[in-house]
């Protein structure tokens, strides 16, 4: 629970740790498929009910977790938590439902933005099967069995895998009580516990645009903060470029890219002197931190994705490291951008 008195809305998010069910080639995208089904709610009309009250449900599948979030006003928190309860309830779908939804995911994959495609390529290049993108493989999804999906969901949503985060202008104690009342009775089920990790090197070719990435260790390491600063500064050198990083306790990537195929990122990293960009990097980091720590949805996401991995993980470690990045750390981080993804 994070109280943000100046916030003008509340974000209620549930993060479901996927360590027990990471994407593998044989089940690639099951979590994404489940996200699609569960977001509809028990009667397929959850969105409809929320939108009628000016609320909005969003859902996302990352490598580490599945997230469902509801954006609402402080007076609507109870309904938002009930909506989260609704998406957690296991649904039994039919084989026909699976075929239709696998096709929609096929469309989703085909239409994904350049940044997303490029990021998937970079992850595969860096981590092989353990870096598989969370969108999934529609051919694998079409063969999924309803009962198999339902069992997976029941195991994944065992309480030890869940983190409920509420950020916004809310009173902490009564809201905590409300959350316990609405969600606190869930029973644990025996869960497969596979520790999430990422290893291995594979190769991939970008299909859209160009990018460069740096491998990072846990979000807690000072080197990760330095790579975030360097990544922001490198992105700043190319107009209309993008920057991606999702905090995680396991190894990951900081990636910068562009929809332009012709950008020679390696050349930029080699030829530019990082010292010339340290000052602007500090400003860019301040802005990045400001955005992550003032907008309720981002605050909840930053906390939720870490808490789902372990109740002891806190983003403050990363934020403090970001404030204290030194020039030598920054130089070192700059050089670590060496995973190039281009056609």
């Amino acid at each position: 629970m994070e109280r943000l008195p100046a916030a003008d809305y509340v974000s209620v998010q549930i993060w479901i740790n996927s360590a027990s069910f990471p994407d593998r080639f044989a089940t690639h995208g099951y979590r994404h498929l489940l996200e699609h089904f569960q977001a509809k709610g028990f009667d397929n009309r959850l969105d409809y009910r929320l939108e009628s009250k000016g609320m909005l449900l969003d859902a996302e599948t990352t490598r580490d977790a599945i997230k469902f979030g509801v954006r609402c006003q402080p007076s609507q928190v109870k309904q938002a938590i009930q909506a989260i309860g609704d998406v957690l309830r296991p649904r039994l779908v039919t084989k026909a439902n699976i075929e239709v939804e696998a096709n929609i995911i096929r469309e989703e994959i085909a239409l994904r933005a350049g940044a997303s495609q490029l990021s998937a390529d970079a992850w595969l290049k860096a981590y092989g099967e353990s870096g598989l993108d969370p969108y999934g493989n529609p051919d694998v999804l079409a063969k999924a069995e309803p009962v198999e999906l339902q069992n997976t969901w029941v195991e994944m949503t065992s309480p030890e895998n869940l983190a409920l985060v509420i950020a916004g202008n809310v009173e902490i104690d009564p809201t905590t009580e409300l959350a316990k009342e609405l969600l606190g009775t869930r029973k644990a089920v025996s869960s497969i516990t596979v520790k999430a990790d990422r290893t291995g090197i594979n190769d991939a070719v970008a299909r859209k645009g160009s990018a460069i990435a740096a491998k990072v260790a846990s979000f807690r390491e000072p080197g990760t903060a330095a790579r975030i600063a360097a990544g922001l500064a490198i992105a700043n050198l190319v107009p209309a470029s993008y920057f991606q990083y999702g905090p995680s306790n396991v190894p990951g990537l900081v990636l910068v890219g562009s929809d332009e195929k012709s950008i020679n990122w390696v050349d930029i990293v080699v030829k530019e002197n990082p010292d010339d960009h340290f000052s602007v990097a500090k400003k860019l980091v301040d802005r990045w931190v400001e955005i992550q720590t003032t907008d309720p949805a981002r605050v909840a996401a930053l906390r939720g994705r870490l808490l789902a991995q372990s109740p002891s993980l806190r983003p403050e470690t990363l934020l403090e490291n970001l404030r204290t990045v030194t020039v030598p750390q920054f130089r070192e981080a700059w050089k670590s951008f060496n995973i190039e993804v281009r056609p």
């Binding site: 003008d8 809305y9 939108e51 009628s52 009250k53 000016g54 609320m55 909005l56 954006r71 609402c72």
Partner: peptide
């Protein structure tokens, strides 16, 4: 009438609750 209510609710969401879209 439910569809009209949803559209009005969504409009409120856009301009008062900042839900986007």
């Amino acid at each position: 009438e439910e569809d009209r209510t949803r559209a009005l609710g969504f409009a409120n969401g856009i301009w008062k609750n900042g839900i986007g879209f």
